[in-house]
Amino acid sequence: MKVLVPVKQVARLGEDLVLEGPGPPQAEGWELNEWDAFSLEAAVKLAEGPPGGEVLVVTVGPERAEEALLACLARGADRAARIWDPVLEGADPLAVAAVLAALAATEEPEVILCGAQSSDAANAATGVALAGLLDLARVAVVDAIECNGDRLTVHRELEGARAEVLRVALPALLTVQTQINEPRRATLREIKQARAKPLVTLGLSELGLDPAGVLAAAGSRTVALAEPERGEGARMLEGSPGEIAARIAELMRADAGAL
């Protein structure tokens, strides 16, 4: 079974932000999107089960995003691809999905596992947009996966701590919720070995795409970024720890009115 796992490297922002126009703020560091650690683990588990398989991890990002791919290779992915063109800077989910669709069309995976959302933009859209473009059956926000031959049985999260159990035939795309599994940690040896695994970089033309087409696929354009207005702030409780605790106990009483 071939499993394709699209991942995203997200910015970690520092405490103080400097904003210059609609472009991205300065990042303190970069990390793998939290959801993608869970989709990768789910993919590796599928490929480890019978009849065996292969996990291909792909990202749309500049050179620094290879760090995220190496982390995935260390945790069990077999090979990696990075797709980039400067026009993709700050790309929205539909533009990214258009690029991923071109790669998926050449790889023809049986399963595509995406994180349910990214921690930065949180549109929760790229995976399902990709399924739409590929005309693939899909289930969004899944928190359990079981493989039965050519079908998957999955649990889809619902509001109110409930789940729907459903079956979907392969090929299919799932978007994966956090806590679905325990993502493994890579050993030092695996981190070293990751560098020896195949990692290819691709431009748009190698996928039969062009910058104008990708721009046209985008669903939106960010024209401004601003800090949200701060709330009115809390009413501060003063006094000794004992006085503060007494006031908290009072506020927690069932008959204390809501604000």
Binding site: P93, A124, A129
Partner: peptide, 24 residues
């Protein structure tokens, strides 16, 4: 609505129709 149900189809409609799109 930005709901768990909508997350299963809205982005697919937008991508296929080449519509504008944003969530949440």
């Amino acid at each position: 609505g930005h709901t768990l149900d909508s997350l299963g189809f809205a982005a697919a409609v937008a991508a296929r129709g080449r519509h504008g799109f944003a969530g949440d």
